[in-house]
Amino acid sequence: MFVVLLTYTAPLEEVDYALPDYAKWLEKHFAAGEFLAAGRRDSREGCVILTRSMSRAKLEAILCVNPFVLGHLATFEIIEFAATRTAPELHRLNEAMAQLA
């Protein structure tokens, strides 16, 4: 699994202008089952995306066509982790836990 931290590098007015395209991009990846959760950081300095397990190369390819990244409005950081413990309602989303069951 991955946590992606997007950090805005442009004024919020420019980020807000790109939000409709970003929302469409997010929807595409939720529909494909690649993203599990996404939302603004409380400080409004960027966004957070939680993804399913996939290759890092695939995730980087997905992120490179993010409208915020394409428009030079944000940068991203990828944090990879293996969830070894989850709440019961997340067990079926966690491939590692599913293998233990």
Rank of each mutant, 00 (worst) to 15 (best):
L36R: 14
L36Y: 13
A37N: 08
A37H: 10
A38S: 14
A38G: 05
A38H: 05
G39V: 09
R41S: 03
R41I: 10
R41G: 01
D42M: 04
D42L: 11
D42K: 01
S43G: 09
R44C: 00
R44T: 02
E45D: 15
E45F: 04
E45I: 11
G46D: 05
G46H: 07
C47Y: 02
I49G: 05
L50Y: 11
L50G: 05
L50C: 02
T51V: 06
T51L: 03
R52E: 13
R52Q: 13
R52V: 11
R52K: 13
R52S: 12
S53A: 12
S53V: 13
M54P: 10
M54I: 11
M54A: 10
M54L: 14
S55G: 13
S55Q: 13
R56I: 03
A57R: 13
A57Q: 13
A57Y: 07
A57E: 15
A57L: 11
K58L: 12
K58R: 15
E60K: 14
E60G: 00
E60V: 10
A61F: 01
I62T: 08
L63C: 07
C64T: 11
V65T: 14
V65F: 00
N66S: 06
N66C: 14
F68Y: 15
F68T: 02
L70M: 12
L70T: 09
G71A: 02
G71N: 08
G71Y: 08
H72L: 09
H72M: 09
H72E: 14
L73D: 01
L73A: 06
L73I: 12
L73G: 04
A74E: 03
A74I: 02
A74M: 07
A74W: 02
T75N: 11
F76Q: 01
E77S: 08
E77P: 00
E77W: 00
I78H: 05
I78F: 03
I79D: 07
I79M: 13
E80P: 12
E80G: 10
E80F: 12
E80A: 15
E80Y: 13
F81I: 06
F81C: 12
F81S: 13
F81Y: 15
